[in-house]
């Protein structure tokens, strides 16, 4: 592997970037908080208006900058606040997920989930699930830009 990943295996904690649509998934995250559910702090959320705002370039940028996993979450199909956004996302990110996997990224590192604003429990579960899977996979060196230094 050409990119050096020098995380200390014992103390390593994965970084997971979750892009959540404002109306369902981000609100689902709020619901998880309001219900005082708990999930690993490895997950950090970036709010986007709609999952259809998700450019594949944002996903790759996260991997370049050292994310070990990326999650995109949107409203369930049929529930999109903008009516059709997530239908487009389903096609776009299905194609992109398979392309990313084709170049050797493990499938678990990039996921798409539908989480409604009432599904605080699902939000917490998905975040925990993703974190566990990424922990099992270990640090991601693929597509990582070695020049980008993290602060721990």
């Amino acid at each position: 592997m050409s990119t050096a990943v020098n995380e200390n295996a014992a103390g390593w904690e994965p970084l997971i970037v979750a892009f959540c649509c404002n109306w369902c998934s981000y609100a689902g995250g709020d619901m998880a908080g309001t219900s005082r559910m708990s999930y690993p702090a490895n997950v950090k959320v970036i709010r986007v208006p709609c999952s259809s705002r998700m450019s594949p370039m944002f996903i790759l940028r996260a991997f370049q900058r050292g994310a070990d996993g990326v999650l995109v979450a949107g409203c369930h199909p049929g529930d999109c606040h903008y009516s059709t956004g997530n239908y487009h996302v389903r096609r776009r990110l299905s194609a992109f997920k398979r392309l990313v996997e084709f170049t050797g990224v493990e499938p678990d590192r990039f996921e798409v989930r539908w989480i409604s604003s009432s599904e605080g429990d699902k939000f917490a579960d998905e975040m925990a699930d993703m974190t566990n899977k990424i922990k099992a996979l270990g640090p991601n060196g693929k597509m990582r830009d070695a020049r980008w230094q993290n602060i721990t």
């Binding site: 990119t3 790759l60 991997f63 370049q64 990582r144 830009d145 070695a146 020049r147």
Partner: peptide, 8 residues
């Protein structure tokens, strides 16, 4: 000229 940029 970086592998990650080539992937991008």
């Amino acid at each position: 000229y970086q592998p990650s940029e080539n992937f991008m």
